[in-house]
């Protein structure tokens, strides 16, 4: 666990975040659904998910959002401030899959001190689960 916050001046376009592998389990899908208070049946009841055309329960969008957010804040550090998460969902995350998160700094804005990180979450079975951009504000100038 790092409690250091990344300084704005130390970030450049093209920087990459260390990849994070997230094994998708029934526990993660159900745990994420409950933590986000999303009791929609397709996220905990396999039969309900199958009625909707998928073979098993699948991750809810709030958990995907949460994983994307935490992937970036774990990198950015505690003093960072998340401004925006744009998320596009692709193939569902089902139990047994492994999702790999990767990220790259795509833009930095000197005036606002914000950094745009493009994040891709790809699972090993159906490919792109989510892609999106997270905007975080980082502190400037450790010398201050």
């Amino acid at each position: 666990m790092s409690i250091d916050t990344r300084d704005f001046s130390n970030v450049a376009v093209g920087d990459t975040l260390p990849p994070r592998e997230v094994p998708i389990t029934s526990a993660l899908i159900v745990g994420g659904a409950l933590a986000s208070r999303d009791f929609t049946t397709v996220h905990h009841d396999k039969k309900a998910a199958q009625k909707g055309g998928l073979p098993d329960i699948f991750m809810n969008i709030l958990t995907s959002n949460g994983l994307m957010g935490s992937y970036v804040t774990n990198w950015a550090g505690p003093d960072s401030c998340t401004k925006k998460i744009d998320l596009k969902l692709g193939a569902p995350n089902l139990p047994g899959f492994i999702m790999t998160l990767t990220g790259e700094v795509k833009a930095i804005d000197e005036a606002s001190g914000t950094v745009d990180i493009e994040v891709l979450g790809e699972n090993n079975v159906w490919g792109m689960h989510m892609q999106g951009t997270v905007r975080v504000q980082l502190p400037k100038g450790a010398e201050a």
Binding site: G32, G66, N74
Partner: peptide, 11 residues
């Protein structure tokens, strides 16, 4: 509970 599930490490 949220931080546990999402793997949020920030203190």
């Amino acid at each position: 509970q949220w931080a546990e599930v999402m793997g949020d490490e920030s203190p």
